[in-house]
């Protein structure tokens, strides 16, 4: 994770604090940042949506650059331990970077807690959902890499999918599967977590299948 990304992430949280000042700093601010939705007015708030998208772009770019930097070493890794080792390396680096993102979120939650002296039930769901959603998106990124899709194009695809899914999720909760949280998350939380887990299992199976020699890795080797 680069220093530039940490600065950007901090910038988004600070910006969020500043635009929410009229309502007072509260732990629920983080919920609104993650959903892009104002549950008081029951409407999507455009600046919430944009800030949410901003944080997602940073999360995804952190993971994408981690995958890309390991993937650049693919010939050296695969000849040392085979294609499965390459996939293991990619998964390990993804999990490491997701854990760093979760740690930053943890710090922000603590910061909000000390200011507002209250705690949100959103915390548990947010942590679990962030881990599962980012894992799902990371597996999709790995899949694109294995198909030889260029870094910028895969980043653009994922960000576009996330932006559209976040918007649609306000009306169709099924789209919440590929975003961290959406409106009415309390109602759908168990189902969403199950859907995300199933999505991860499916993606994982495809990635393992395609990483076998003679499968889609050949596209990358061309």
């Amino acid at each position: 994770m680069t220093r530039k990304n940490i600065v950007l992430l901090s910038g988004i949280f600070l910006l969020y604090l500043s635009v929410n000042n009229s309502e007072g700093v509260h732990i629920s601010s983080l919920e609104r940042l993650a959903t892009g939705y104002n549950d008081v007015t029951n409407k999507m708030q455009f600046y919430n949506y944009l800030l949410n998208l901003g944080t997602m772009v940073i999360y995804i770019s952190i993971i994408e650059s981690a995958i890309a930097s390991r993937f650049r070493l693919r010939n050296y890794i695969a000849t040392r331990g085979g294609h499965k080792t390459l996939i293991n390396c990619l998964l390990r680096t993804v999990i490491q970077h997701i854990c760093v993102i979760l740690f930053i979120k943890q710090v922000v939650y603590l910061f909000f807690y000390f200011i507002s002296e209250s705690f949100s039930s959103f915390y548990g769901f947010d942590m679990l959902s962030t881990f599962l959603t980012l894992s799902l998106l990371a597996l999709f990124l790995i899949l694109l890499k294995l198909q030889g899709i260029k870094e910028k194009l895969s980043l653009f695809s994922i960000v576009s999918i996330t932006a559209i899914a976040q918007f649609l999720s306000y009306h169709y909760p099924i789209f919440s599967t590929i975003v961290i949280a959406s409106a009415g998350w309390q109602e759908w939380q168990a189902l969403m977590l199950v859907c995300k887990s199933v999505g991860i299992l499916i993606m994982m199976s495809i990635v393992i299948f395609l990483s076998k020699p003679g499968k889609i890795m050949e596209v990358v080797e061309q």
């Binding site: 010939n75 050296y76 000849t79 003679g214």
Partner: peptide, 22 residues
């Protein structure tokens, strides 16, 4: 070095270790 598999034909070799610069 097994980064690719042949479409046909055989490659006979013991389990060597490889150092590559490709």
């Amino acid at each position: 070095c097994d980064l690719l598999q042949p479409t046909s034909g055989t490659v006979k070799k013991p389990s060597y270790t490889y150092g590559v610069m490709i």
